[in-house]
Structures are given as structure tokens and as C-alpha cells.
Amino acid sequence: MDLILVTMIDGLVTGLLLFMLSSGLTLIFSMMGVLNFAHASFYMLGAYFAYQISRYIGFWPALFIAPVLVGLVGAAVERYGLRRVHKYGHVAELIFTFGLALLIEEVVQFVWGKGHVEYNAPESLQFALFSIADYEIAAYKIFMIAVAAAIFIALLLILTRTRVGMVIQAALTHPDTVEALGHNVPLVFMGVFGVGSALAGVAGVIAGPVLGTFPGMAVVLGSIVFVTIVVGGLGSLWGALVASLLIGWLTTFAASYNIGMADLLGALGIEPPADLSESLLRDIWTLSLPQVGPILPYLLMVLVLVFRPYGLFGNRDA
């Protein structure tokens, strides 16, 4: 029972981290129709910027400065890169963002080296806040939850309660009409791209100390973010949240319980073959849940695409 509760908290942390990445990506995709392959690279940039800044003036200023820098980089990429490529169609845009991801990875390796960098949580958060039975919950985890929750509430309020939010929502579906009403739609695009990148940057700043800050960190998280927005429904903030939490809990619970495939199939009344070494399906019988955990989100994506192609909360046909 204790372990379930602890795993719920761990899964929540993973899920909210995913949400910070997917919320920006889903907004960018639904507005510009660009599948931004470089999104996870902005997450990586956030971690590295924060590492560099924190070496001089500490973690707390870095928490605010690094995302702003990443946001500026993102806005510049939209203004001087994507906007120019846009007229050549979606394929060109795709290739542009793909190349950008490779470029950012190389630049990071060039500047900070190929190994891990020493980026740690601030001293003031390096203690166990409370423990459930024998399981300690680090204060930093609770801090991550708080930051992610604050961002979600702020985003929701901005998108639904402010004038800017309404313009963005209108520009999502009817950019021409919005432009005809006198709004500067390219500026809105640039803003959304910048803010989306900054959100990924925040995720990098707070995840870097926990998941490690190294040149491969974007690749590790990159594909799962796409899965999240497809499952949640393109362009839906609620969808991104629900899908992120779902995937966070799914992977965390799968890794936490050593249930073998043989147990699962046994429960379904299927008996293992007498001689496993001869059986063609022996690999399936010897698998355990933690081993298949990482592919479960992709399985979920396939199921969602089959039964609800526009995602759990999506409101238009993908």
C-alpha cells in the first residue's frame, strides 16, 4: 500500500515533467502545423544554460533566466528560420527542425563536452521532505510538482481568461480571419514558439539535476513527448496534461512491479510450454513488466490511434 502511494508520487513527477514539454509542443503543432523535432533540444538547452548560470549566480536566478534565454532562442529560430522555410511547405519545415535538433546536440557537445556536467539540485532542497514507511520523498520532487502545477494553472488562465489567450485560440483554427481583424498573426506565432520553447527550457532546468545533464538527454525524452501529444490530442492543453500523467504513471508502475509475463499469462489461464528452451515464444515467457515498461506508451499510442485517431481530448481530425 505504501509503495503504491510512493509510486503515485513518483509517477506524478514524471508525468508533470512530460507535461511541461508536451504543452509547448502541442500548442506549436496545432498552431503552425509544424512537428517540431527540436523541441526536446530546447529542453536540453534549458538544462545546460541553467548549469552554466548556476555556476556563477546560483540555482534560483538560473531557474528564471535560463528559460527566458531558451525562449529567446526559440523565438529567433521561428523568426529567422521557420518563417523563411514555411513557404516551402511542411516537408521543408520538418527537415529544418530535424536538422536543428542535430545542430543543437553538436553545439552542446562542442561547448560543454560529451560527458555529464556537474549540475545538481540546490543545497536548500537536498533533503528528504517526508517519508512514507521507509521511502523518502526528496524535497526537490515536491518542488518539481509545485513548479509544474503552477505552470499549468498559469497557462490555463492565460489561454482562457485573457485577451492574448483568445487571440491565440482563434489563431489556432482561423488564422486568416484573425489576421483580417488586424492582429499580427506572425507575431503571435513567434510568441507561441518562444513560450513553448521556454516551457521546455523550464522542464530542462528542473529535470537536469534529477535525470542527468548530458548531450543524449534530448534523444532520451524526444520520442516520448510526441507520443504524449498524439495520445492527448493535438492542440489540447487538457489532453497534454492527462496524457502526460497517464504515461508517467504507466511507466512508473510498470517499472515498480516485477510481474513476469508468465504470471500474467498464467492468470489468463495460459500455461507455459513444458520445455521453454525449445519453444519459439520463450522470450515472451521470460519477460517481466519492468522490461516491457518503456514500450507501453507506444502501445498506448497505437491503441489511441486505432480507436480515437484525434486523441483523447482532440477536437479535430488529425
Binding site: L3, V6, T7, D10, V13, T14, Y135, V210, L211, G216, V220, L221, I224, T251, T252, F253, A255, S256, N258, S288, P290, Q291, G293, P294
Partner: peptide, 17 residues
């Protein structure tokens, strides 16, 4: 136990176990 190589994002569940 063995975990997938280079695929695990967060090792917390393993640590809990």
C-alpha cells in the same frame, strides 16, 4: 533484474524497489 539499456528515463521506481 535487468533494465532496458539506455531507455530508462527515471530510475526512481527501481530505487524504490
Amino acid at each position: 533484474e535487468l533494465h532496458p539499456i539506455g531507455k530508462v528515463k527515471d530510475f526512481t521506481p527501481y530505487a524504490r524497489k
